[in-house]
Simulated assay, not measured.
Amino acid sequence: MEELTGTVLAGESFRPVRGRVVVEDGRIEAVEETDTESTDIVLPAFVNAHTHLGDSVAKEAAVGLTLEEAVAPPESLKHRRLAAADRADLVSAMRRTLRFMHRTGTVSCLDFRENGVAGARALREAAAPVDVDPFIFGSDDPEVLDVADGYGASGANDDEFADERAACEDRGVPFAIHAGEPDATDIHPALDLGPDLLVHMVHAGREHLERVADESVPVAVCPRANEVLGVGTPPVRELLDHATVALGTDNVMLNPPSMFREMAYTAKRFDVTASEVLRMATAAGAEVAGLDCGVVEPGRRAALLVLDGDSDNLAGSEDPVRAVVRRATALDVERVVV
């Protein structure tokens, strides 16, 4: 049995509780109010709701390029670099990114892995020695579902994807698809596929928002990547009013997969509360992938992040949730408990 003490951000609301979290056999046994001198902040570890870890072989290579030049299949810089990458170098690069993610508080990510079965297997190998468990959305062929956890489609304007959607339905695994990133033309076609997750939705209008709400489709947003690629700004407030919204960092080639940076940007750029942003970075992504984490409450898997609330950066913060979302950095991390 292990006890983590300090200010615990407990439950779905992240209510600050001065006390302790009791962990036994990898699960949270209790969250209790008690006297403590600890200045630590205990919160759920992050779930990054959208990554492209293969991009680790081309960090910063696409800066200044358009969306089509940088990442559009099949001839973009990204896909050329992936095709040319040595497998051992690819596995090593993804593993280093996963180690960075762990050190910055992330325990899982929803990764769109290119290159079919071989790509999914490479990511499994990369993750094997690291305490980050990627939820792999595979690509190219329905047979990738023998290795991956679901299927990740590039966009409804790129291909039909009906066979891939049907394969996911048969196996009871999620189907995710990019939508509304360059423009709105692929949003309704994406929704026609009955997805379990939409990614980006930068150009979502009222008719799309209403349909997302009616069909209860969750959305992953990646505001920093949208900014770098110049595609626009996702309507985060409106999306939150209509759907479950999770937060992702998108292409490793464009931005480091730091949920601290993504949360701070989102909190300061959009009309959202700190609690909403923290939920986007934890419970929402876990919910999308069916992961048993993202909330500090009894019975949950103990996937926890411990910050030094008395660090030079966080000391004196009046609101621990705001401090975590708007101010905290990797330097404030004391432990990641998995």
Rank of each mutant, 00 (worst) to 15 (best):
D111V: 13
L98M: 07
V333G: 11
M253G: 14
F135C: 08
V306F: 02
R206F: 09
V117N: 07
E33A: 15
L67W: 14
A286I: 02
R301V: 07
E69D: 11
R27N: 01
T104G: 12
D140Y: 08
D292R: 05
V57C: 07
A284T: 05
V324I: 11
V321Q: 03
L229K: 02
L278G: 01
C109I: 10
P257E: 08
E32V: 10
N255S: 15
D292I: 03
D214P: 00
V288I: 14
G116I: 02
A30E: 14
R95Q: 14
Y151K: 08
V173F: 07
S317W: 02
P218L: 04
P223W: 09
L90H: 08
L229C: 01
A128F: 10
R95D: 04
T97R: 15
R211L: 02
V245K: 10
L254H: 13
F161V: 06
S56H: 09
D214L: 01
P195G: 03
V325T: 08
K59D: 12
T66W: 10
A328S: 14
A302M: 05
P298C: 01
A162D: 11
A220C: 09
T244E: 07
A302H: 00
E69Q: 14
A315H: 05
G116Q: 00
V47C: 04
N48P: 01
V288A: 02
N255V: 15
D89T: 13
D186V: 10
L209E: 04
G290Q: 09
S311V: 11
A45E: 13
D183L: 06
D308T: 01
